[in-house]
Amino acid sequence: MSDPQDRLPLDDTPPAPGEVQRQPGAMKVSARTATVLLLFTIVFTALMAFTHDMTKPILDASAQAQKLKLIGEVLPPTLYDNDLLADAVTLPATPALGLDEPSLAYRARKGGEPVALVFEACANNGYSGRIGLVLAVLADGRLRAVRVSQHKETPGLGDYIDPKKDKNKSNPWIEQFSGQGYDLALGGHWKVKKDGGRFDARAGATISARAVTNASGKALIWIAERRAALFALPAGTTLQEKTP
């Protein structure tokens, strides 16, 4: 690549600056080289630091917005009037939610009255890897909606669990859970039809649907049974499970 062909006729400087300056002693050359490298490092690090400071407030805001957007998909902002992200309690690591680390549950209120709980869950038996879920459970124990926040299901086969990938745009698969009560899950009907339950799954791709269905059902029961306690906790505290 560095053949002289690449030098065009409009070159007006002497070639390869290094060659002319190689005369002085070795010490001097290394000192000079080190200085130059140091200077370049300082100048360009300063440039990066400047950009970082410039963009930081915007980045923080957009990370916040991102979180609210995901929450907004399961719980529209019109339904509550409190500062959702500030009104959170910590849930311990809970097998029923499929989580092996503590997570946050956000409490939506309108005029001080409990509206809904927004929390994460995880389906650990998808076709490939874990399926992250975000759920909103209304104060009366019904599931407001569930969304898939991350997954690695086979593209075109199992990824219809994510409404963005669902070919049926008018009535996405995951919408059938919206508004269902947790008594359905208690009665053992929170399953795909193939397993004797209430919910559809697409032919030939049941595994992803089954994983989401089972995980959301289990999570719904767990949260719905503790919803009074969760709403009563002071913000920022951790839910303490009574010993069974």
Partner: peptide
């Protein structure tokens, strides 16, 4: 004119990396 021949590659990478980060 300022970049010594011996360390041109590290300097180039430094410049490119800084720009990409920005």
């Amino acid at each position: 004119g300022l970049i010594p021949y011996e360390i041109r590659i590290p300097v180039f990478i430094l410049i490119i990396a800084a720009l990409v980060t920005v």
